[in-house]
């Protein structure tokens, strides 16, 4: 190919790439970014909780009851015996039923097939969810911040709701930040 023709082709290709390049952001269209937990939302105040206390809430809240009632937005805030804060997704990683927090047993128990999750780290210790391999045997956790006033804010989700955690082995305490 003569060099001049080669140059023309190169220019054409570069122009084509330039024109098409903005469309790489089309991929964003398919995700609901807000669902991945970029929103900072107040859940409760430290005064509302005593050891063993818990609050069910939805995150991220939109004000649309249909969306806020979606199982994939249901979370529970727990204060453990020794005063630690924990937030877990309420969707069982086995078959998506909604486990309840049982205060007397200090466990989350799934009503469908009896999977039992520990309150301290959300890992299943009994039932079908416990047979799944890590990281799919543990409830996704909420990232929270506690500010000077004692307000508790949810700022994100660690894990895949209805599926399990991420591969990194993060300690539950690392998700609670004091600001």
């Amino acid at each position: 190919m003569p060099p001049r023709r080669l140059l023309l082709r190169g220019v054409l290709t570069a122009a084509l790439v330039a024109v098409v390049s903005p469309f790489v952001h089309v991929i964003d269209f398919f995700y609901r970014r807000e669902a991945e937990g970029v929103k900072r939302q107040k859940i409760a105040n430290m005064r509302d909780l005593t050891p063993g206390g818990f609050i069910y809430f939805s995150y991220p809240q939109t004000g649309d009851p249909k969306i806020d009632n979606d199982p994939f937005r249901q979370f529970v805030l727990i204060m453990t015996e020794d005063g630690q804060l924990r937030v877990y997704s309420r969707v069982c990683v086995h078959l998506w039923c909604l486990p309840s927090y049982i205060q007397t047993r200090r466990q989350l128990i799934c009503p469908c097939h009896g999977s039992i999750y520990r309150e301290e780290d959300g890992v299943a210790i009994e039932g079908p969810a416990a047979y799944q391999s890590y990281p799919t045997n543990a409830l996704p956790m909420g990232k929270i911040e506690v500010d000077g006033n004692g307000d508790i804010w949810m700022v994100g989700v660690d894990g895949r709701i209805g599926y399990g955690r991420e591969w990194h082995n993060i300690k539950p305490d690392e998700l609670v930040r004091r600001v």
Partner: peptide, 24 residues
């Protein structure tokens, strides 16, 4: 959804395309 999530590499990227923000 479990199968899509469990796919190596691309799974966590593809699954939310079908799942969106939840069942709704």
């Amino acid at each position: 959804m479990g199968l899509t999530y469990s796919a190596p590499l691309l799974g966590p990227t593809i699954a939310p395309i079908f799942l969106g923000g939840g069942l709704f």
